[in-house]
Design a protein around this nucleic acid. Structure first.
Lengths: 346, 346
DNA sequence: GGCAACATTGACAGCGTTTTCATGGGGACG
DNA sequence: CGTCCCCATGAAAACGCTGTCAATGTTGCC
């Protein structure tokens, strides 16, 4: 007859471990965290006791007492988006070996949700915060500044960084993508996007800049949904319906580009024979697709890695900031098979 | 006389708020958490003070004192894999409205890393844990049981669940995928996979079962890397090199299938004319691809949603478990354009 | 042998909240 | 007008751990 003590499933605490090892709590604590401070004999006894009891340290209490939580907070607009895979991986690569936990919260591309996520995060007292994007609400900015921890804004270059800023010019990148198509001789260059974030808008600005420069007509279609492969196809359909003369499109990201590519295949259009396609981000699929997708490669891994390393340096170095508070990591245009010169068609 | 503790910027605590509102800490605490327990007058005063000081409650202290952390832990083998997008979204959909935070840790498809992740998670004292997969190490199992919180294993059906188990038979699903190809008349049915997890292996078992049943020859190629689109192409290449007679393949997941599809396009093979392809999971891309990919749809969203709801019920209902501790959610074969009858070719 | 320097260990006081539990005041009721 | 109860409030005790500093035992050296 077993009686589950559901009201008080008393947990194994450091106290229990200490008692079993017949040492004081302090010693037990040290034996586990700083073995070198404790004699070999006791160290073994404590370890044995801890293992026997399956002791799991209470990080809450530990963090509260030591005022160091050993974690950093990351807020990204989406986990779904392949863009943030490399980004998160880089952060893990840097912090996990340093024994720092990475807490990820999702803002769903909504400034309001981001503010909430930032406040929640701050309530956990992370030792630093990494933000994807630069458009925080004023209240969030204030809270972040007041927290007195390193804050790294990434993905874009900010006019007024909160603290540290590592990114690239989304507008320049958008310009480069569009320009690539104009340089190939295209004059009817369309644009499709799912502009949920400020970065998409900046890329569009870049596109418009190129359009003006070449005296072309802006041809844009967008949808206010999380970008998906399916939307890529639909948006291409709309674009072609409105501007049948289109010979090239710049897609706000690679998923849209992939959807557009599939739509072309469905319609029997040759890519790039009938339509040139350039995407954005250089996700894995861009290189593997057939035809492979021209795109803009953004240094997502590198960006997050640098962010992580700067944070480690600040934390380790007692809070001193590096001299360079803003870093432009640039981007690369990757011309693959999906873009070709105008006129190859005939 | 007050001694400013070093360079540490003093944090605003409940004590400060209470002082400013001229009430006791208890009242301040209640005014913020359970406004209905406090008179309107004080409630306003406390709220005003909190806002003025930009007070952020220390969740660490709160959790320590209340013994409730308001969060649940989730451990998935990969964030990169599209499979877990729906899964995590469902969990968020359930828990965020319930004001419960979702902590996600990544096991990188390695049992050792998963054990570590589980222990780390347990140290945070989540109110429940959701696991993707059923193959935890013995030590992890012990720690989980000892934690006395709801544990939900998902994605597969377990012979001996730790606590709750919601999933589907991966072997049956693999069998169904292979069987679909045999039913279409194919006899040279290959299999490609990146079997980092036990689920892939079970799907292969299902494939082998079908192969035996139809008296065919097993033709399998695999790679020990995280599955990627590129590997899909390469594996298909190897498979065809070894068994040129292949007329259909079952891919361990949709990414591999997509890579295989692209490889066919690159080689000028018609799909399904020259090769039928069936994938697994029904990621978004499967429906959008051209030709669209036949695949096995797994109820990832539903699975995670159910897991979340059961957890909420247990937490709310003071720990009582539902009668049904194991739920089989099944799967669906989705026949699309990428599979066709043998002989359509000639 | 005596003293300083060192290496170990332990007692105590928090860390910032929440939870009892006690207290006083006011309203309902007779 | 006096009880009985209930409501709003506050005091003090956890929650589990770590930092500080003092106390103990050890070693080395003159």
């Amino acid at each position: 007859m077993k009686k589950p003590p559901k009201s008080r499933p008393k947990r194994v605490t450091l106290h229990d471990v200490a008692a079993r090892a017949r040492v004081s709590m302090v010693t037990a604590s040290r034996a586990l965290r700083r073995p070198e401070m404790v004699s070999l004999d006791l160290r073994d006894r404590v370890n044995a006791a801890a293992r026997a009891l399956a002791y799991v340290p209470n990080q809450l209490a530990s963090a509260l007492a030591s005022r160091r939580t050993g974690r950093i907070g990351v807020i990204v607009p989406s986990l779904t988006n392949g863009v943030f895979n490399d980004y998160l991986r880089a952060l893990h690569d840097v912090f996990v070996p340093a024994d720092i936990q990475v807490l990820v919260l999702n803002s769903h591309y909504m400034p309001g949700r981001e503010e909430k996520a930032i406040l929640t995060m701050l309530g956990q007292f992370p030792e630093a915060i990494v933000l994807a994007g630069i458009e925080q609400t004023p209240h969030a900015r204030k809270a972040l500044q007041q927290a007195g921890i390193p804050v790294v804004q990434t993905m874009e270059l900010a006019a007024k960084p909160i603290d540290i800023n590592i990114g690239l010019s989304q507008q320049d990148a958008g310009y480069a993508a569009a320009r690539h198509l104009f340089d190939l001789g295209h004059r009817h260059v369309g644009q499709i996007s799912a502009p949920l974030d400020s970065r998409s808008l900046k890329r569009i600005d870049g596109y418009l800049q190129a359009v003006r420069e070449f005296g072309a007509t802006p041809m844009m279609v967008s949808v206010d949904l999380p970008s998906s492969i399916a939307s890529g196809g639909e948006l291409l359909g709309e674009l072609l319906a409105r501007w049948p003369s289109t010979t090239a499109i710049f897609c706000g990201n690679d998923n849209l580009a992939l959807g557009a590519l599939f739509e072309c295949q469905r319609r029997g259009f040759g890519v790039p024979r009938d339509l040139s396609i350039v995407g954005f981000n250089d996700l894995e699929v861009a290189a593997s697709a057939c035809p492979s997708l021209s795109t803009i490669a953004t240094p997502r891994y590198e960006m997050a890695r640098r962010a992580g390393e700067i944070i480690l340096e600040i934390i380790r170095g007692s809070g001193r900031r590096p001299k360079q508070r803003q870093i432009d990591l640039g981007f690369r245009l990757i011309a693959r098979e999906s873009t070709g010169e105008l006129g190859n068609s005939s």
